[in-house]
Design a protein around this nucleic acid. Sequence first.
DNA 1: CTATGTAAACAAC
DNA 2: GTTGTTTACATAG
Length: 768
Amino acid sequence: MHSLSEMATMPATTMSGSGGHEMISGGTFSNCGSSTSSVGHLGADGGSFVPTSSQDEAMDELGPVSRDRCNTWPMRRPNLDINAQTSPLIHEEIPEEENDLYDSSEHIGRLGGSSTNSNGVLHSPDANSTYSEVSSPVMNGVSPTESNEVSSNSKKSTTRRNAWGNMSYADLITQAILQSPDKRLTLSQVYEWMVQNVPYFRDKGDSNRRRASLPIIHCLSSTRPQRRRFFFVALNRSVLSLLHHYCWPTFLRSSFAHTSLVIRSQLCSTFFLAVCFSLPIFLISPLPAATMEASSSVDDDFVPEPRERCYTWPMQQFVYDQPPPQMMTSPMMREPTVGQMLTSTPSSSNMGAHLMPLGMHMVPGGSHGVNMNNPMSGGSAGGGPIPKKKRCRKKPTDQLAQKKPNPWGEDSYSDIIAKALESAPDGRLKLNEIYQWFSDNIPYFRDRSSQEEAAGWKNSIRHNLSLHSRFMRIQNEGAGKSSWWVINPDAKPGRNPRRRERATTIDVTNKAALDKSRGRARKKIKDLRCGQIIGSVNCMAGSQASIVSHDLYDEESMQGNFEPVFRPRTQSNLSVPGSSARVSPSMEQPFDDLDFPPWVDTASNMAIPNDIVDRTDQMRIDAARCGIGNNGNMNAYAQQQHQMQQIKQEPKIIKQENGAPPSYHELNSVRGPCAQNPLLRTQMTPPGKYQPMNMYQAYGNWGAAGVPVSAHACGVQQQSQSLGSALPIDLENLTLPDQPLMDVDMDVESLLRHELSQTRDHQLNFDL
DNA sequence: CTATGTAAACAAC
DNA sequence: GTTGTTTACATAG
Ligand SMILES: [Mg+2]
């Protein structure tokens, strides 16, 4: 079994009341609350938050300092009156939700139907109905004909918010979950429920497509009202990091009681996001009685206490001592998450015994570094095409005898990289940090740290990072900054690249020919770049390619996909083998490895963004407003982060137009309105610093205890301000297949923006 | 065959 | 020189 550390190491993240307020008001985002309780009271009273002028003032007080330009979060928008009009309805419901928001179908119905409940009202799920037996739970209480009419009628109706009725996705999901026996469903079961119970989705057909593999479990069965709040748990660090970079906050259990409103609203977004992106997120009520109370003591001990501090900072870190029961026993957990797979490599326990038998100069195995064997291997150096001598890499007999696949041990580069990333406090490392991790933790590489010797294995690391969709690069905005590398939680476990084999089939005998052909290819590309229309598009192989903003290169032509004038180093130029012309992105299935609801127009609606801009290092924190007085409540890590933030404070950023036209980064910055997480590690903290086990010898214990806890705080609110007011309100609008400029990148952005717009709009759509 | 390691070309920074 | 992406090729299973 997997230890829980890899999936339940929860970063402490709380949302400050001010954050919640900002989210609603559309004001600026503050990463920090105040040290006083004035801001925190939002959570203290259980979410009875109402945007008032006084709070607005408080907000202003706490708001970020003025800045020239928003590189980390959107600038304050003048006014979002639209929200003010749309929100109150839902808004007013929230404060009172203490009593059973989720068990009250009426509430849900009301949320779903803003004006009339004729269609949106949901009756309480039949107590006898089981998940599998529900006939048409969504339309309970609605006459068959009526319901049918509602859902099948696609024409716009002013009384209907969505094509299927007034219920939001969250409403539907909630219904599905509530009607399940265990009050929890996997994502695929949610899909199934949708398809089975909502005619609109049923009609979309293809219910078996893109089944979810990663579960969302929603436990709402807590009997104690005070615990009937939600937070979500990223099951592993990978997800965590992704959430993190998406700016979806994760929460400590200790924080939820104070931030229920925020959490709920965040949850809704996350909820939806989870559905769309198949994030393995657990949605659980605070220690749901049904699933956790029985076996987990964590719950019972846990009593959230009010606290006076910035709720964006972690107070304490919450770590499951053991996996939540459902994770261990639930049959729904069919497919392991990436993180689980990473840590479930067989036998790494012998890593500890992995003695480097040979001195660093004996170099039994690897041909890395100074390779004596092949003096000609410097391919391009020579003047002319030198026939390349065949490489001969025989595995040394002693290594064979040890059954070790590699001179350093069992794990592949990929495995080691993954472990490095997982060991990182934020689940992310930069390339050189990965290098360092190798050197620090694995003797073999440590012994080959010289520039010359390291070139080989570093190359291999880079190669692996690029090659495997398992790893995801996150753009680190800022000149000269290398990207963050994280585990890609959406990577498909099994299959991966199908491009490697080509070499074996190509019969090119000498390097000259190879280079020549390569040159031709290059030339061809360059020619094409000069204006020819090519039928390929930057596409994703697996989920591995970077997402390219077509806004950049392809202003308005959906027909002609011009190659970019140049390809950013970090941008894949791969085209899909087999499908040359992909004029219509929805035709091909470049996202087969992604799990989307069947009815979702995957190609047009979303994709896993592999390029995410991270502007962590650019945030500016006003330390004075961050509740510094309560450091005693922080864990060491948080304190360190805190100090760092105080130290940092560099107002710089403001990376203005470098003379360049709307750059790739610029566009990325729009797409990835990721927040700067005040708790994110910066470059000032070396990756290995928080590692309890720094030795590769302890390798086998990874996953058990080796993953340090990290604290994350990530506000989602600030994103909302960047959203145009013209954003579609209904998800439907985003899934229209004929939306122009529809492409991977575009869709991610729009999806996120949509989500954010929902958030801004007071959870108009997704609030439960 | 696939998975992996290694080398290297190339490009952008 | 570094960071990334790809391709090529070799070996093991
Ligand atoms: Mg990759």
